[in-house]
Design a protein around this nucleic acid. Sequence first.
DNA 1: CTGAAAGCGCTAACAG
DNA 2: CTGTTAGCGCTTTCAG
Lengths: 370, 370
Amino acid sequence: MTDALRSDGAAPTLEDVARAAGVSRATVSRVVNGVRNVDPAIQETVRQAVSVTGYTPNRAARSLVTRRTDAVALVVSGTGVEPAAGGGGQTERPGEGDAAGRGGEGSFTARVFADPFFGRVVTGVVDYLRPRGIHPVLMFAEASWARDDVVSYLRQGSADGALIVSTHAEDPLPALVAEAGLPAVLYARPARPARISYVDLAHRDGARLAAEHLLARGCRRIATISGPLDIPAGADRLAGFQETMARHGHPYIPVAEGGFTQESGEAAMERLLTAHPGLDGVFAGNDLMATGACHVLREHGRRVPEDVAVVGFDDSGAAAACRPPLTTVRQPVEDMAAEMARLLLDRLAEPERPATSVIFEPTLVVRASA
Amino acid sequence: MTDALRSDGAAPTLEDVARAAGVSRATVSRVVNGVRNVDPAIQETVRQAVSVTGYTPNRAARSLVTRRTDAVALVVSGTGVEPAAGGGGQTERPGEGDAAGRGGEGSFTARVFADPFFGRVVTGVVDYLRPRGIHPVLMFAEASWARDDVVSYLRQGSADGALIVSTHAEDPLPALVAEAGLPAVLYARPARPARISYVDLAHRDGARLAAEHLLARGCRRIATISGPLDIPAGADRLAGFQETMARHGHPYIPVAEGGFTQESGEAAMERLLTAHPGLDGVFAGNDLMATGACHVLREHGRRVPEDVAVVGFDDSGAAAACRPPLTTVRQPVEDMAAEMARLLLDRLAEPERPATSVIFEPTLVVRASA
DNA sequence: CTGAAAGCGCTAACAG
DNA sequence: CTGTTAGCGCTTTCAG
């Protein structure tokens, strides 16, 4: 277990082990890689030599010949968490100076992790990849230069493929990656179909669940706080909700658009309450906004769920942390992320495999808020 | 910009570019790497050839000779977020089967990201590393096998060094890495000093700020919800708080230990309230627990801050999201994480540089809760 | 079943 | 300033 047998400080190589074991590099390579057809006795000798020398295979050297890195890029792409600034994220690349790139509250990465959603994606991906010896490299692609980084990173062979969380419809990354023929899987259906696998949630079905629950509960003056409408998840949840409500005789539903943040949920709830003081039910596009709605409702003297019932979406940690705990539509993010990883690994093992998509069904989780 | 000039599907190599430009590989390498001493005219020719062939340097090949990967491991180590199970995280490595390692609510990775703290660390690290072309590889080291993975990952030269978030005092990883002589920087001072750099917060000073604020506000029946006492950050905050209170004539302070989660904060607050119904001030070891405390206080009819003042710690997103918004002690996590990254890069540039530590000073952020 | 030999694609002396 | 020449450490035919 020691790094002995080498005068210089350099790490021991196959050559060193071979010499120590009195065999050839090829043989050592075979036993290290568990290739069969090696005499058990020699196998043992080699193992000893490996442990005596403290040998560890050099990954760069191995990658060079196998053309595999056992790493995948986990990229968070234009997420719609971006501020409603003009342009389209085509900002300049930040300087390389000392003060540059220091993450204030406003940096893209900071905003990304402010939403529990991404932590769940990471969890699902990592838990699937880890037992398989694959390592995730974290990347963010909020601007043109960052997208180029992702593409060249993959083209350099620094990672075997990419897992892309791309919630924003206008995100150009999926197309870029697909055109370049790079192995990738998306979280969320791409705006324009491409030869690329993805996982997604049946958002409309989830919204239907929420609508039916509110209705079954006896709510009759229902409003909704939608997510950003330029994000498919936001738009689909709204559409599904309106659709179901219409089918049940409520063709018009007041809607206030939010930005998937608690703060925006609070603001939206304020607007809704001002315009419709008598409402008795609210469906929010995600749990963060639902939490904000609860706060505002209480501040205005409304009891939840007695006076106003509230249903969220996602079943993130925020749902259970809310007071009262939120009734919400569960999006199995961890499972979806794991599936995304599985699809990528399948594709890597079998490059010709056609692109596929897996759509998950949401479920209603009833807690105290509705 | 096209991948032309190569009959087979293989990626173009330096050789291809050299041929296209009518120069040697060495020259192409020079211009690609921006080495001076290359005739401007030839430089231009080469650049053209690069773009015509669609050349991208192969990272494995480059790493093999430079012995650099431009990647660092970002590892979350035994964090004390672990359940209070016996043993010491020496559990078996999970199977490699299909069902194994699928991240339920209970997996280590899931628990890690349930705390906003880690997202902030990632933010700080990524924002510092990105402009410098370094990529973070996410790793978790909650058990013995996982720690070995980290060590061998580094020894394989898969990453140039490690950024280790190790909050738990008993965590063996810092020592393992230090002994192996691998470049690394810690977030939080190691239990036993080692030749390894770290960043940390002056926890006691932060607790002092909280105590003084509560006192200045007029609170006289003060209690505290501490973090896990086997985590230095938890113990130090408690010690600092008690110390300051004692100095101000309050030698005895009721304390309930929590686990840095909202839920544990709720339970602790219940206990405190039962034993000391008349309390008028609470200092919680972090914002999550403070949020839980606020919930329980309200449920018990106490107004915050009128009846009971609450001070949190960290100034994480939870502080602003809480109703009322939390007065809290700010830990500049993003800055600390960036500094951690800076220390590592310095060390990589100058291997002989001695280990250093940087201690950050907390500040009080006054909001509505106290 | 084992060894010899040929590279993978790139950088870095060292000559010229 | 540019080209030639060695490898970096490993896997993988191909012989034996």
